[in-house]
Nucleic acid binder design. Sequence first.
DNA 1: CTGATTTAGTTTCATATGTAACTATTTGGC
DNA 2: GCCAAATAGTTACATATGAAACTAAATCAG
Lengths: 155, 155
Amino acid sequence: MADTPDHPRLRLREFLPYRLSVLSNTISRRIAEIYDREFGLTIWQWRVMAVTGDTPGISATEIGQRTAMDKVAVSRAVAGLIELGYLERKSSDEDGRRSQLYLTRIGQSVYEQIVPLAQSEERILTAVLTPEERTELTRLMEKLAAAASPGGPLW
Amino acid sequence: MADTPDHPRLRLREFLPYRLSVLSNTISRRIAEIYDREFGLTIWQWRVMAVTGDTPGISATEIGQRTAMDKVAVSRAVAGLIELGYLERKSSDEDGRRSQLYLTRIGQSVYEQIVPLAQSEERILTAVLTPEERTELTRLMEKLAAAASPGGPLW
DNA sequence: CTGATTTAGTTTCATATGTAACTATTTGGC
DNA sequence: GCCAAATAGTTACATATGAAACTAAATCAG
Protein backbone atom coordinates (compact mmCIF):
# COMPACT_ATOMS: atom_id res chain seq x y z
CA MET A 1 0.00 0.00 0.00
CA ALA A 2 1.95 2.92 -1.34
CA ASP A 3 -0.92 5.37 -1.13
CA THR A 4 -3.24 5.12 1.82
CA PRO A 5 -6.21 7.48 2.25
CA ASP A 6 -4.68 9.08 5.33
CA HIS A 7 -1.60 10.04 3.36
CA PRO A 8 -2.91 11.61 0.20
CA ARG A 9 -0.31 12.45 -2.42
CA LEU A 10 -0.48 14.38 -5.62
CA ARG A 11 2.07 13.77 -8.29
CA LEU A 12 2.10 17.10 -10.08
CA ARG A 13 3.68 15.58 -13.16
CA GLU A 14 0.71 13.34 -13.67
CA PHE A 15 -1.85 16.02 -13.00
CA LEU A 16 -3.53 16.89 -16.27
CA PRO A 17 -4.07 20.61 -15.71
CA TYR A 18 -0.42 20.95 -14.78
CA ARG A 19 0.83 18.99 -17.77
CA LEU A 20 -1.38 20.97 -20.11
CA SER A 21 -0.19 24.23 -18.68
CA VAL A 22 3.48 23.34 -18.98
CA LEU A 23 3.07 22.05 -22.53
CA SER A 24 1.08 25.05 -23.64
CA ASN A 25 3.53 27.48 -22.07
CA THR A 26 6.52 25.76 -23.60
CA ILE A 27 5.00 25.98 -27.05
CA SER A 28 3.72 29.53 -26.59
CA ARG A 29 7.10 30.74 -25.44
CA ARG A 30 8.78 29.27 -28.51
CA ILE A 31 6.31 30.97 -30.79
CA ALA A 32 6.29 34.26 -28.94
CA GLU A 33 10.03 34.37 -29.26
CA ILE A 34 9.93 33.85 -33.00
CA TYR A 35 7.26 36.47 -33.64
CA ASP A 36 8.93 38.97 -31.42
CA ARG A 37 12.29 38.44 -33.08
CA GLU A 38 11.05 38.36 -36.66
CA PHE A 39 8.31 40.96 -36.59
CA GLY A 40 8.34 42.67 -33.20
CA LEU A 41 4.90 41.26 -32.46
CA THR A 42 3.42 39.94 -29.22
CA ILE A 43 1.23 36.86 -29.31
CA TRP A 44 -1.84 39.06 -28.90
CA GLN A 45 -0.83 41.28 -31.78
CA TRP A 46 -0.12 38.26 -33.84
CA ARG A 47 -3.57 36.85 -33.18
CA VAL A 48 -5.17 40.13 -34.17
CA MET A 49 -3.16 40.16 -37.40
CA ALA A 50 -4.28 36.63 -38.13
CA VAL A 51 -8.00 37.29 -37.85
CA THR A 52 -7.88 40.71 -39.47
CA GLY A 53 -6.02 39.26 -42.43
CA ASP A 54 -8.64 36.58 -42.62
CA THR A 55 -11.59 38.96 -42.25
CA PRO A 56 -10.83 42.54 -43.29
CA GLY A 57 -13.15 45.11 -41.76
CA ILE A 58 -13.63 43.05 -38.61
CA SER A 59 -14.46 44.93 -35.40
CA ALA A 60 -12.56 44.78 -32.12
CA THR A 61 -15.39 42.92 -30.43
CA GLU A 62 -15.45 40.26 -33.11
CA ILE A 63 -11.72 39.91 -32.83
CA GLY A 64 -12.14 39.27 -29.14
CA GLN A 65 -14.66 36.52 -29.81
CA ARG A 66 -12.49 34.83 -32.39
CA THR A 67 -9.24 35.00 -30.48
CA ALA A 68 -10.37 34.35 -26.92
CA MET A 69 -8.97 37.73 -25.92
CA ASP A 70 -10.78 40.17 -23.67
CA LYS A 71 -11.61 43.58 -25.04
CA VAL A 72 -8.85 45.39 -23.19
CA ALA A 73 -6.25 43.04 -24.64
CA VAL A 74 -7.70 43.56 -28.11
CA SER A 75 -7.71 47.32 -27.67
CA ARG A 76 -4.07 47.32 -26.64
CA ALA A 77 -2.97 44.95 -29.39
CA VAL A 78 -4.79 47.03 -32.00
CA ALA A 79 -3.24 50.24 -30.69
CA GLY A 80 0.21 48.69 -30.95
CA LEU A 81 -0.39 47.43 -34.46
CA ILE A 82 -1.61 50.83 -35.63
CA GLU A 83 1.49 52.31 -34.03
CA LEU A 84 3.60 49.82 -35.99
CA GLY A 85 1.77 50.80 -39.16
CA TYR A 86 0.37 47.31 -39.74
CA LEU A 87 -3.27 48.11 -39.15
CA GLU A 88 -5.65 50.93 -39.87
CA ARG A 89 -8.99 51.78 -38.37
CA LYS A 90 -12.08 53.25 -39.96
CA SER A 91 -15.12 54.14 -37.97
CA SER A 92 -18.17 52.28 -39.19
CA ASP A 93 -20.74 54.38 -41.06
CA GLU A 94 -23.74 52.51 -39.67
CA ASP A 95 -22.43 52.42 -36.10
CA GLY A 96 -20.14 55.14 -34.86
CA ARG A 97 -18.93 53.10 -31.90
CA ARG A 98 -17.76 50.22 -34.01
CA SER A 99 -14.38 50.32 -35.67
CA GLN A 100 -13.52 48.50 -38.87
CA LEU A 101 -10.00 47.19 -39.01
CA TYR A 102 -7.86 46.56 -42.06
CA LEU A 103 -4.30 45.57 -42.71
CA THR A 104 -2.25 48.31 -44.29
CA ARG A 105 -0.13 47.52 -47.34
CA ILE A 106 2.80 46.82 -45.02
CA GLY A 107 0.58 44.90 -42.63
CA GLN A 108 -0.59 42.75 -45.52
CA SER A 109 2.96 41.89 -46.45
CA VAL A 110 3.77 41.01 -42.84
CA TYR A 111 0.64 38.89 -42.73
CA GLU A 112 1.76 37.03 -45.79
CA GLN A 113 5.01 36.16 -44.09
CA ILE A 114 3.42 35.34 -40.78
CA VAL A 115 0.98 32.77 -42.00
CA PRO A 116 3.40 30.37 -43.68
CA LEU A 117 5.78 30.75 -40.76
CA ALA A 118 3.05 29.79 -38.32
CA GLN A 119 2.04 26.86 -40.48
CA SER A 120 5.60 25.72 -40.71
CA GLU A 121 6.04 25.94 -36.94
CA GLU A 122 2.94 23.88 -36.46
CA ARG A 123 4.11 21.34 -39.01
CA ILE A 124 7.47 20.95 -37.32
CA LEU A 125 5.82 20.50 -33.98
CA THR A 126 3.23 18.01 -35.13
CA ALA A 127 5.69 16.12 -37.27
CA VAL A 128 6.26 13.85 -34.29
CA LEU A 129 2.66 12.68 -34.61
CA THR A 130 1.11 10.55 -37.32
CA PRO A 131 -1.88 12.02 -39.16
CA GLU A 132 -4.16 9.71 -37.17
CA GLU A 133 -2.61 10.87 -33.93
CA ARG A 134 -3.15 14.49 -34.91
CA THR A 135 -6.79 13.84 -35.60
CA GLU A 136 -7.13 11.97 -32.35
CA LEU A 137 -5.44 14.75 -30.39
CA THR A 138 -7.83 17.29 -31.84
CA ARG A 139 -10.77 15.12 -30.94
CA LEU A 140 -9.62 14.60 -27.36
CA MET A 141 -8.88 18.27 -26.88
CA GLU A 142 -12.32 19.17 -28.13
CA LYS A 143 -13.91 16.80 -25.66
CA LEU A 144 -11.94 18.36 -22.82
CA ALA A 145 -12.67 21.87 -24.01
CA ALA A 146 -16.39 21.11 -24.04
CA ALA A 147 -16.16 19.73 -20.51
CA ALA A 148 -14.13 22.64 -19.17
CA SER A 149 -15.93 25.59 -20.67
CA PRO A 150 -19.10 27.24 -19.49
CA GLY A 151 -21.96 25.05 -20.51
CA GLY A 152 -19.91 21.92 -19.91
CA PRO A 153 -20.84 19.23 -17.38
CA LEU A 154 -19.33 21.15 -14.49
CA TRP A 155 -21.29 24.38 -14.81
CA MET B 1 -9.55 26.50 -54.94
CA ALA B 2 -10.44 28.00 -51.64
CA ASP B 3 -6.86 28.50 -50.57
CA THR B 4 -4.33 29.53 -53.16
CA PRO B 5 -0.68 30.11 -52.26
CA ASP B 6 -0.92 33.83 -53.03
CA HIS B 7 -3.71 34.21 -50.49
CA PRO B 8 -2.47 32.42 -47.43
CA ARG B 9 -4.96 32.04 -44.62
CA LEU B 10 -4.65 30.88 -41.09
CA ARG B 11 -7.65 29.58 -39.25
CA LEU B 12 -6.72 30.32 -35.68
CA ARG B 13 -9.23 27.80 -34.37
CA GLU B 14 -7.39 25.00 -36.07
CA PHE B 15 -3.96 26.18 -35.06
CA LEU B 16 -2.63 23.77 -32.44
CA PRO B 17 -0.68 26.23 -30.30
CA TYR B 18 -3.76 28.44 -30.11
CA ARG B 19 -6.10 25.59 -29.22
CA LEU B 20 -3.73 24.33 -26.57
CA SER B 21 -3.40 27.76 -25.06
CA VAL B 22 -7.14 28.34 -24.90
CA LEU B 23 -7.80 24.91 -23.42
CA SER B 24 -5.05 25.23 -20.86
CA ASN B 25 -6.17 28.70 -19.83
CA THR B 26 -9.79 27.65 -19.51
CA ILE B 27 -8.85 24.80 -17.21
CA SER B 28 -6.31 26.82 -15.24
CA ARG B 29 -8.80 29.59 -14.62
CA ARG B 30 -11.36 27.14 -13.28
CA ILE B 31 -8.85 25.66 -10.91
CA ALA B 32 -7.34 28.96 -9.86
CA GLU B 33 -10.79 30.15 -8.98
CA ILE B 34 -11.48 27.15 -6.78
CA TYR B 35 -8.19 27.32 -4.89
CA ASP B 36 -8.47 31.02 -4.40
CA ARG B 37 -12.00 30.77 -3.12
CA GLU B 38 -11.47 27.72 -0.89
CA PHE B 39 -8.00 28.36 0.48
CA GLY B 40 -6.85 31.80 -0.65
CA LEU B 41 -4.09 30.21 -2.70
CA THR B 42 -2.71 31.17 -6.08
CA ILE B 43 -1.81 28.45 -8.58
CA TRP B 44 1.87 28.97 -7.77
CA GLN B 45 1.29 28.65 -4.06
CA TRP B 46 -0.79 25.60 -4.68
CA ARG B 47 1.99 23.98 -6.67
CA VAL B 48 4.48 24.71 -3.92
CA MET B 49 2.14 23.16 -1.36
CA ALA B 50 1.76 20.10 -3.55
CA VAL B 51 5.48 19.36 -3.87
CA THR B 52 6.32 20.34 -0.31
CA GLY B 53 3.63 18.05 1.00
CA ASP B 54 5.04 15.34 -1.20
CA THR B 55 8.67 15.98 -0.24
CA PRO B 56 9.10 17.69 3.14
CA GLY B 57 12.41 19.50 3.53
CA ILE B 58 12.61 20.31 -0.17
CA SER B 59 14.56 23.43 -1.19
CA ALA B 60 13.27 26.34 -3.24
CA THR B 61 15.48 25.40 -6.17
CA GLU B 62 14.16 21.86 -6.22
CA ILE B 63 10.62 23.18 -6.07
CA GLY B 64 11.37 25.24 -9.13
CA GLN B 65 12.57 22.20 -11.01
CA ARG B 66 9.58 20.10 -10.10
CA THR B 67 6.95 22.72 -10.76
CA ALA B 68 8.29 24.47 -13.86
CA MET B 69 8.39 27.72 -11.91
CA ASP B 70 11.29 30.14 -12.03
CA LYS B 71 13.08 30.95 -8.79
CA VAL B 72 11.46 34.36 -8.41
CA ALA B 73 8.01 32.81 -8.60
CA VAL B 74 9.00 30.17 -6.08
CA SER B 75 10.42 32.77 -3.74
CA ARG B 76 7.24 34.79 -3.86
CA ALA B 77 4.95 31.79 -3.47
CA VAL B 78 6.96 30.56 -0.47
CA ALA B 79 6.90 33.99 1.13
CA GLY B 80 3.13 34.11 0.73
CA LEU B 81 2.67 30.64 2.20
CA ILE B 82 4.84 31.45 5.21
CA GLU B 83 2.77 34.59 5.65
CA LEU B 84 -0.37 32.46 5.58
CA GLY B 85 1.15 30.15 8.16
CA TYR B 86 1.08 27.12 5.88
CA LEU B 87 4.81 26.70 5.45
CA GLU B 88 7.90 27.06 7.58
CA ARG B 89 11.48 27.42 6.61
CA LYS B 90 14.61 26.07 8.26
CA SER B 91 18.05 26.95 7.04
CA SER B 92 20.00 23.86 6.08
CA ASP B 93 22.78 22.88 8.46
CA GLU B 94 25.08 21.65 5.72
CA ASP B 95 24.45 24.59 3.41
CA GLY B 96 23.49 27.94 4.85
CA ARG B 97 22.16 29.24 1.56
CA ARG B 98 19.70 26.45 1.14
CA SER B 99 16.36 26.52 2.87
CA GLN B 100 14.42 23.47 3.90
CA LEU B 101 10.69 23.84 3.62
CA TYR B 102 8.02 22.07 5.63
CA LEU B 103 4.28 22.28 5.94
CA THR B 104 3.14 23.55 9.31
CA ARG B 105 0.43 21.68 11.16
CA ILE B 106 -2.15 23.96 9.55
CA GLY B 107 -0.43 23.67 6.19
CA GLN B 108 -0.58 19.92 6.47
CA SER B 109 -4.30 20.01 7.07
CA VAL B 110 -4.79 22.33 4.11
CA TYR B 111 -2.67 19.99 2.02
CA GLU B 112 -4.85 17.09 2.99
CA GLN B 113 -7.89 18.94 1.75
CA ILE B 114 -6.19 20.21 -1.38
CA VAL B 115 -5.09 16.89 -2.74
CA PRO B 116 -8.44 15.14 -2.91
CA LEU B 117 -10.03 18.30 -4.25
CA ALA B 118 -7.49 18.45 -7.06
CA GLN B 119 -7.97 14.79 -7.80
CA SER B 120 -11.69 15.21 -7.87
CA GLU B 121 -11.41 18.17 -10.25
CA GLU B 122 -9.24 16.12 -12.54
CA ARG B 123 -11.64 13.21 -12.39
CA ILE B 124 -14.61 15.38 -13.27
CA LEU B 125 -12.72 16.89 -16.16
CA THR B 126 -11.44 13.63 -17.56
CA ALA B 127 -14.73 11.87 -17.01
CA VAL B 128 -15.61 12.79 -20.58
CA LEU B 129 -12.78 10.55 -21.76
CA THR B 130 -12.57 6.79 -21.65
CA PRO B 131 -9.59 5.28 -19.83
CA GLU B 132 -8.02 4.44 -23.19
CA GLU B 133 -8.51 8.01 -24.36
CA ARG B 134 -6.86 9.31 -21.21
CA THR B 135 -3.86 7.09 -21.78
CA GLU B 136 -3.69 8.14 -25.39
CA LEU B 137 -3.92 11.83 -24.52
CA THR B 138 -1.04 11.46 -22.10
CA ARG B 139 1.01 9.69 -24.73
CA LEU B 140 0.35 12.35 -27.38
CA MET B 141 1.09 15.18 -25.00
CA GLU B 142 4.36 13.58 -24.05
CA LYS B 143 5.36 13.31 -27.68
CA LEU B 144 4.57 16.98 -28.23
CA ALA B 145 6.34 17.98 -25.04
CA ALA B 146 9.46 16.17 -26.17
CA ALA B 147 9.31 17.91 -29.54
CA ALA B 148 8.72 21.35 -28.08
CA SER B 149 11.21 21.42 -25.25
CA PRO B 150 14.92 22.08 -25.43
CA GLY B 151 16.56 18.96 -26.74
CA GLY B 152 13.62 18.27 -29.05
CA PRO B 153 13.93 18.14 -32.84
CA LEU B 154 13.68 21.89 -33.21
CA TRP B 155 16.57 22.90 -30.99
C1' DC C 1 44.25 30.27 4.02
C1' DT C 2 42.66 33.93 0.39
C1' DG C 3 40.46 35.87 -3.26
C1' DA C 4 37.64 34.64 -7.52
C1' DT C 5 33.71 32.13 -8.96
C1' DT C 6 29.49 29.78 -8.38
C1' DT C 7 25.09 28.96 -6.27
C1' DA C 8 20.58 29.84 -3.41
C1' DG C 9 17.46 32.92 -2.72
C1' DT C 10 15.60 37.91 -2.45
C1' DT C 11 14.78 42.50 -3.99
C1' DT C 12 14.20 45.94 -7.43
C1' DC C 13 12.46 47.77 -11.43
C1' DA C 14 10.14 47.86 -15.68
C1' DT C 15 6.40 45.80 -18.18
C1' DA C 16 2.14 43.03 -18.74
C1' DT C 17 -2.35 42.02 -17.48
C1' DG C 18 -7.15 42.19 -15.50
C1' DT C 19 -10.91 44.72 -13.29
C1' DA C 20 -13.46 48.55 -12.96
C1' DA C 21 -14.57 53.09 -14.26
C1' DC C 22 -15.26 55.98 -18.02
C1' DT C 23 -16.65 58.12 -22.86
C1' DA C 24 -19.15 57.98 -26.90
C1' DT C 25 -22.73 56.18 -29.47
C1' DT C 26 -26.77 53.54 -30.38
C1' DT C 27 -31.12 51.35 -29.20
C1' DG C 28 -35.54 50.87 -27.14
C1' DG C 29 -39.57 52.23 -24.37
C1' DC C 30 -42.93 55.55 -24.10
C1' DG D 1 -38.57 63.08 -30.13
C1' DC D 2 -36.48 62.04 -25.38
C1' DC D 3 -34.51 59.74 -21.64
C1' DA D 4 -32.89 55.09 -19.70
C1' DA D 5 -30.38 51.21 -20.73
C1' DA D 6 -27.15 48.73 -23.54
C1' DT D 7 -22.96 48.37 -26.31
C1' DA D 8 -18.05 49.42 -28.42
C1' DG D 9 -14.00 50.68 -27.13
C1' DT D 10 -10.47 53.27 -24.11
C1' DT D 11 -8.29 54.70 -19.92
C1' DA D 12 -6.80 54.29 -15.12
C1' DC D 13 -5.42 51.75 -11.41
C1' DA D 14 -3.91 47.97 -8.90
C1' DT D 15 -1.60 43.57 -9.13
C1' DA D 16 1.27 39.96 -11.42
C1' DT D 17 5.24 38.71 -13.73
C1' DG D 18 10.09 38.39 -15.54
C1' DA D 19 14.83 40.03 -16.06
C1' DA D 20 18.56 41.74 -13.93
C1' DA D 21 20.94 43.33 -9.92
C1' DC D 22 21.92 42.15 -5.45
C1' DT D 23 23.19 39.54 -0.81
C1' DA D 24 24.94 35.79 1.52
C1' DA D 25 27.05 31.50 1.69
C1' DA D 26 29.81 27.79 -0.38
C1' DT D 27 33.38 26.07 -3.46
C1' DC D 28 37.48 26.02 -5.90
C1' DA D 29 42.17 27.35 -7.65
C1' DG D 30 46.54 28.47 -6.22
